[in-house]
Computed example of a mutant assay.
Amino acid sequence: MLQPPPIVLSFAANDPSGGAGLQADVLTIASMGCHPLSIVTAITVQDTAGVDDVMPLDADWIVDQARAVLEDMPVHAFKIGLLGSVEIIAAIAEIISDYPHIPLVMDPVLTSGRGDELADEEMVDAMRELLLPQVTVLTPNSLEARHLAQQENDNHGTKLGLNLCAQRLLSMGCEYVLITGTHENTAHVTNTLFAADGVVRADDWERLEHTYHGSGCTLASAIAASLANGLSISDSVIEAQDYTWHTLQAGFRPGMGQYIPNRLFWTKENEDAANENAEVVIEKPND
């Protein structure tokens, strides 16, 4: 019998546009050679422009979905995306706590690309208290990092430095924090991986001209898949960044909003390479 691929379980919301959420996670995880398990946390009304509505599922449904597959299959990594409610956060935190040996990658989805609020302050507090202490790699963009790291005594209007944000998030219990620099005013996008003893690595990427729906989901899922494939934290982070950048470079605009990452970009590359290497048969002329 063939050895099954590594398995990654994702907790995320359904995205009917296919750009973000569970659809992005499933495509990414499968594209990186793993088998995806998908636990629906919420139903959304959204397109490539933004999120119009979110209907969180009952927390018991999340528990039943997750327990059913966890009791049936060995999971090699967890990935968390949009959650939907405090009750769902608490339920997932309890499930994850039963599997402390499985790495957990969390994309803290607080707003949509358009700026639609997807997590209120009560949910943010629950994330800090219940989930962050269990996270292996947290993958906030710079806006999310500042929001999660904000404290009551901070001066309003003061922009927190990303090093300070990382220190605060690590002090909440995260093992590693990867802060992405897409929203920073820099020539290149710099993504920095932090651990308790400081910067592990900082990677610069060419800044692409478009905005993308589902880039954060893609990156977090790619890290989870890389960890499931047995790579180290540092190698998983660089492998996932490389994969994500290429999905963005090959991105497409199917609707009237943002571009969508092409998680299967490599199929076109393989097809082009096969065409280039195809043997050309030349008929031998008659003597």
Rank of each mutant, 00 (worst) to 15 (best):
Q3S: 04
I7W: 15
L9A: 10
S10Y: 09
F11E: 00
A12Y: 06
A13C: 11
A30M: 14
S31R: 14
G33Y: 14
G33I: 15
G33V: 15
P36I: 11
I39L: 01
I39P: 01
T44W: 00
T44L: 07
T48Y: 08
M55L: 13
M55E: 14
W61T: 14
W61A: 14
W61L: 15
W61N: 15
V63F: 05
M73G: 06
F78I: 02
F78M: 05
I80V: 10
I80D: 01
L83K: 04
G84L: 04
G84K: 02
A90Y: 02
A91C: 01
A93S: 10
E94G: 10
I96K: 03
I96C: 04
D98H: 13
D98G: 10
I102A: 05
L104C: 05
L104H: 04
D107H: 03
L110F: 07
T111K: 13
T111H: 06
R114K: 15
G115W: 08
E122N: 12
V124E: 10
V135G: 01
N141S: 01
L143F: 14
R146I: 13
R146A: 08
L160Y: 03
L160F: 03
Q167F: 03
Q167K: 13
R168F: 00
L169K: 02
C174L: 08
V177R: 06
T180Y: 03
E184C: 08
H188A: 12
L193N: 05
A195K: 06
A196N: 11
V199Y: 07
R201I: 06
A202T: 13
E206P: 04
T211H: 13
G214L: 06
G214T: 00
G216C: 05
C217Q: 01
L219A: 05
I223N: 06
I223W: 01
A224W: 01
A225M: 02
L231E: 00
E239A: 13
Q241S: 08
G255R: 14
G257V: 09
Q258I: 10
Y259T: 03
P261M: 10
N262A: 11
N262S: 12
E276N: 11
N277A: 07
E279L: 07
V280A: 07
V281I: 13
E283F: 00
E283M: 11
N286T: 13
N286P: 08
